[in-house]
């Protein structure tokens, strides 16, 4: 009797499943898991890309703990997260909520909101950088000047620079979040709203008691998704502060930019790997925390 006949249907299914899974599994092992493991190992070593890798124990982590720049960057990263996520969530919800009711040129308006998401971050960053210039180049300062309001130093001020860099990052992500929110809004059956109309409750009650609770899965998805985005912010910062990446005085520097700096300007691969491991841990903790807080009770 040959193999084909001796296997049960279930065993054959399993065999086929693993056959198909083999390629993605192999791909993930080579492309994802191996580098991740390697980075964790590297974080306990010294390596400058050319010489041999030597063991350093926990030295890289100790160095990180005492590194003032790291703590500044650590703080910046969380400012990006704590400002970026709530702002983008509220703005995209408001846009989606109102756009959902607009019938006039609905598709066109939706496309306009989605456009920045498809545009290159580098190009956007440079356009915004131009917007932020002083009079007569920058549009924002020009507007301020028209109303006789004093000029604002956007990108060269240690207090204004981070929000100024964050704004285009929020703006760029809106289109995607608006689309997801609108899909969530559309999925709520109209009879829920009709029942509420018959009950005669206010629009505010409908929003807080019906719409938002029913959008919870959408809100969870967008929160986690945008949080990860803001924790990994890089290209907007890098391109808006090219003369002095992360400046002025590290005021806008996020963790990913510090990792990039350490690795490809300082050639301290072990130290960069240690920072990467920290970032990875933060991402993991933040995502798990959000999933826990927003879980179904």
């Amino acid at each position: 009797m040959n193999l084909r006949n001796t296997l049960t249907i279930r065993q054959k299914h399993i065999l086929w499943a693993w056959g198909f899974l083999a390629i993605p599994v192999l791909f993930y092992v080579v492309i994802r898991f191996y580098p991740t493991g390697n980075a964790i190992v590297l974080s306990f070593q010294n390596w400058n890309l050319l010489s041999a890798r030597t063991w350093a124990g926990a030295d890289n982590y100790v160095k990180l703990w005492h590194d003032e720049v790291f703590w500044k960057v650590f703080k910046n990263t969380f400012v990006y997260l704590l400002l970026g996520t709530p702002f983008s969530l509220v703005i995209s919800f408001l846009i989606a909520f109102h756009l959902d009711r607009v019938r006039f040129m609905h598709g066109f308006i939706r496309m306009m909101y989605f456009l920045p998401f498809m545009t290159s971050a580098v190009a956007m960053a440079w356009v915004w950088r131009w917007f932020y210039q002083p009079v007569p180049v920058g549009i924002f300062n020009n507007i301020l000047a028209t109303f006789g309001i004093p000029q604002i130093n956007f990108l060269n001020s240690t207090t204004n620079a981070l929000p100024a860099v964050l704004a285009p990052a929020i703006w760029a992500g809106l289109g995607f979040q608006v689309i997801i929110f609108m899909a969530g809004l559309r999925a709520i059956p109209t009879s829920y709203y009709e029942a509420a109309r018959i009950d005669g409750v206010s629009g505010f009650t409908i929003l807080t008691q019906i719409t938002i609770p029913l959008l919870k899965p959408t809100i969870i998805f967008i929160t986690v998704f945008s949080s990860i985005g803001f924790l990994r912010i890089f290209d907007h910062v890098f391109n808006m502060t090219t003369n002095n990446p992360g400046g002025p005085l590290n005021a806008t520097k996020p963790l990913v930019l510090m990792i990039y700096d350490t690795a490809f300007n300082g050639f301290d691969m072990g130290y960069a790997a240690a920072q990467t491991v920290v970032l990875f841990t933060i991402l993991l903790c933040v995502s798990l925390l959000q999933l826990y807080l927003l879980r179904d009770r």
Binding site: S191, E194, A195, D199, G200, L214
Partner: peptide, 26 residues
């Protein structure tokens, strides 16, 4: 008037009691 819908239109995130109480909100 009060209406009973084909798909019931009861809110999945509220308890039975809250669902019934919703009709009394106003």
């Amino acid at each position: 008037i009060a209406m009973v819908f084909q798909n019931y239109a009861i809110y999945p995130h509220m308890s039975v009691k809250k669902n019934i109480a919703f009709g009394l909100r106003t």
